[in-house]
């Protein structure tokens, strides 16, 4: 096969094989470089935990942890400051609850429609448009809440303050609809077609199949999507910073300002807190609380979807 002018390919490959230094070097170094990349993600987690831990410890050396957990007043900027996390928690969970009142029913209804009722073509048109809703930056939602939703609500609820919990809660709910819808739809689409066919064969209507067969079978995935959405709502920052205002909650009045944990962190770092002051460290203590809540919810969501997954 080879002609006389050059050695056979086999011979050439053998000659090259003895001088494959560069290939061998790449073969040895590349996996190490990739391992380093992978380790950076672990270091990020360590970085977050250590950062929060160190500065929170500093904070608790100046403010007692008992006050932080039990006091019902949050006035860090007073000359005689109060550091009770409860009003911030109240604000955070109230806004998240309002968001869920919107996102869960609407998101779930959208998921059932897309998974059980819509034709393939409709589904492929609607889903990307809903993804747009999820891709809009949160600052845009904040702007929308403050300059449009709040004035509209004020015309219905006369006592509504400019900064309130209701408007950002509702807007956050709209933002989270696609998340509930897409995660729940994934769970429902994973239910095998044979289960639906079994019920249809018995004469069940589409609604009965959806609610009595598909919904229970996908329940763990659906609940996991709720938990993840709550976690997302708790961690959401810009909507509440822009439209929720900066006063700690005074009870359950959603028509007035209710500062959330995230809004507090941003508002303090906008310039009020000098480095090394107690207020500066307080943002880490609040950040730590926020981190723990979202982490627990994320782990809970993973646990639910794994532990209670239906084996089809």
């Amino acid at each position: 096969m080879s002609d006389n002018e050059r050695p056979s390919i086999r011979k050439m490959i053998e000659d090259k094989a003895s001088q494959k230094g560069a290939t061998n070097a790449a073969e040895k170094t590349m996996p190490k470089l990739f391992l380093i990349c992978a380790i950076i993600s672990i270091l990020t987690t360590f970085g977050i935990v250590l950062t929060l831990l160190f500065e929170t410890v500093t904070f608790f050396s100046e403010v007692s942890i008992v006050e932080f957990l039990t006091s019902s007043e949050w006035y860090p900027m007073f000359s005689d400051p109060d550091y009770g996390i409860r009003p911030l928690l109240l604000g955070t969970f109230t806004v998240a609850a309002i968001a869920m009142v919107v996102a869960i029913p609407v998101g779930l209804a959208v998921a059932i429609y897309l998974s059980e009722y819509a034709s393939d073509k409709k589904r492929r048109t609607i889903k990307p448009i809903l993804e747009v809703l999820a891709g809009i930056p949160t600052i845009v939602y904040g702007f929308f809440a403050l300059t449009f939703v709040t004035p509209v609500l004020q015309s219905v609820i006369p006592g509504l303050a400019i900064y309130n919990a209701l408007s950002p809660g509702l807007v956050m709910g709209i933002m989270i609809i696609p998340m509930v819808a897409s995660l729940s739809e994934d769970a429902m689409s994973a239910v095998p077609q044979s289960m639906r066919e079994g019920a249809f064969a018995l004469g069940a209507t589409r609604l009965e199949v959806s609610l009595k067969v598909v919904f229970p079978a996908a329940l763990s995935g659906i609940i996991a999507s709720f938990v993840l959405s709550i976690s997302r709502a708790i961690g959401e920052t810009m909507i509440v910073t822009v439209a929720g205002g900066g006063s700690p909650a005074q009870g359950f009045d959603i028509t007035s300002s209710m500062q959330t944990m995230t809004a507090y962190i941003v508002q303090m770092s906008l310039g009020d807190a000098g480095f090394g002051t107690t207020v500066y460290y307080s943002i880490y203590a609040v950040g730590m609380t926020l981190f723990i809540f979202t982490l627990v919810m994320n782990i809970l969501a993973q646990f639910i979807s794994k532990r209670f997954r239906e084996e089809y």
Partner: peptide, 25 residues
């Protein structure tokens, strides 16, 4: 498994917490 779990948990950390990390680190 640790790296994989860690990545899915990092995805759920609120962005403002990453801000705290950036500020400190």
């Amino acid at each position: 498994t640790l790296i994989q779990t860690n990545i899915s948990n990092l995805a759920g950390v609120p962005s403002v917490v990453f801000g705290l990390l950036g500020l400190t680190l």
